[in-house]
Nucleic acid binder design. Structure first.
Lengths: 240, 240
DNA sequence: AGTGAAACAGAACACTGTTCGTCAGGTCGG
DNA sequence: CCGACCTGACGAACAGTGTTCTGTTTCACT
């Protein structure tokens, strides 16, 4: 019996050695058209997300890009949520994990987080899928293991390191999601000027926001990203 | 001319004193039915979210709860996104902001964040709306001002305090969203036992994850929440 | 050859947010 | 007093979505 998508998904979730025997081609090949595979679906899905954003990634959009109907995808993928999870998996599998070096643990952690941020931003909005996907995916666990190893090498207590990995992961994802939202969806504020004007125009019940409007609106998203990362890592230092 | 929902929304975004003159009843009242107002819509919306979760909050669901058609809502609300923003606004307006006390700044910040967490969890999944909604809403800015004031009173630099407020807000929202996802959507892992079993069953390329599976799976969501909060606040200390 | 299973594909279902045209009922000018 | 008018309410419909049901095609194996 060949594996149904459900079985593949279950296998993916408990790391079992996937037979993955794609086997010789079955079904109608209709001329020279490439057979639909999970990898092909993921390739076109990434293409769509990179070009039109995650919101545009629908089953029909992938199907028409593959010149077929929506139902054809369900032979390879359980559902849309499963597709999202596969995308995140492949994304995480391209993260380079350094060999833990106790002397450079801070740069190493920041490097991994920055890689994640770059991957998320290369495919706008895909971080939404990362937030929703189960944290028990094999590829997700792999980068978790990598970050965990770095923090352990830095001398942090296992309990502290474990929870910090979760916190970092969550923050990176949320930050990327926020960036993709304010970037693509709306032109809420074209520049900081408009936001500054709104903040300084607030009523008297917002004294600090008015006074420090410059500080509140300053900094690029990348600046705020590294700031928060360092904030958490500093906290780690003073705890361990 | 009476204000269209678009005008109300614009007014809401630049704090103008809303006339809000509901005026005498107009239009068909058809018997003893209450007239549809924005507040009434929000009340029923909160009811639906509290009972069935944010995913179940659709225009049609609200409309049928009000015994009317979906289009009737669009006379009071611009669109679904606007409704979400209004919900977050009301949610934030119920947060109690303490008078800043430099001696107790840490407890005060944690109190505000915990209040936010409780509000988010009272209405499962609504944190998704909080992530998407513009951070320039008046009520959102109000709790931002409150947290900002506490951090400033603690002696933090304005720039540091400003970015920390953003980081805290983002983390609280993301944490609540994650909790609501693993709670309601799937029974991914009934208990920690199953997750532990999966982690310890990982291949040899996950040495740390296997060894410290207990630490990785320990702690309630509330424990991890306060841990991360303290992590960031400790970092704040060592920076300022 | 024949058979069974797997892959592909089209139509349809139950939803979603949103809009158009219309209807009812109170308000106001004459 | 009474028709014109405005305004809120509403039914129907449109363009989408994810998903499933029902075939149809094509290959590998007996």
């Amino acid at each position: 019996m060949s594996p149904t998508p459900e079985q593949r998904r279950a296998a993916r979730h408990q790391f079992g050695a996937v037979p993955s025997g794609a086997g010789p081609r079955r079904g109608p090949s209709r001329g020279t058209k490439k057979p639909i595979t999970v990898d092909l679906i993921l390739d076109t899905a990434f293409d769509i997300v990179a070009r039109e954003g995650f919101e545009a990634l629908t089953m029909r959009r992938v199907a028409t890009a593959l010149e077929t109907g929506p139902s054809s995808l369900y032979a390879h993928v359980v559902n849309k949520e499963d597709l999202d999870e596969l995308l995140i998996g492949r994304l995480c599998s391209e993260i380079e994990l350094p060999e833990p070096d106790p002397a450079a643990w801070r740069e190493q952690i920041i490097s991994v987080c920055t890689q994640l941020r770059e991957q998320y931003q290369r495919f706008p909005g895909i971080s939404r899928a990362a937030l929703a996907s189960a944290p028990a995916n094999t590829d997700t666990l792999r980068v978790g293991e990598g970050m965990f190893a770095i923090l352990l090498a830095s001398g942090a207590e296992p309990q502290t390191a474990a929870w910090t990995v979760d916190a970092l992961n969550l923050y990176v994802t949320a930050h990327s999601l926020e960036v993709s939202l304010i970037r693509g969806d709306k032109a809420w504020v074209a520049g900081r000027d408009e936001l500054m004007a709104r903040l300084t125009g607030l009523p008297d019940s917002f004294p600090n926001t008015r006074r420090y409007a410059a500080e509140l609106t300053s900094g690029s998203t990348a600046d705020r990203f590294t700031f928060t990362l360092n904030l958490m890592l500093d906290g780690l230092n003073s705890q361990g």
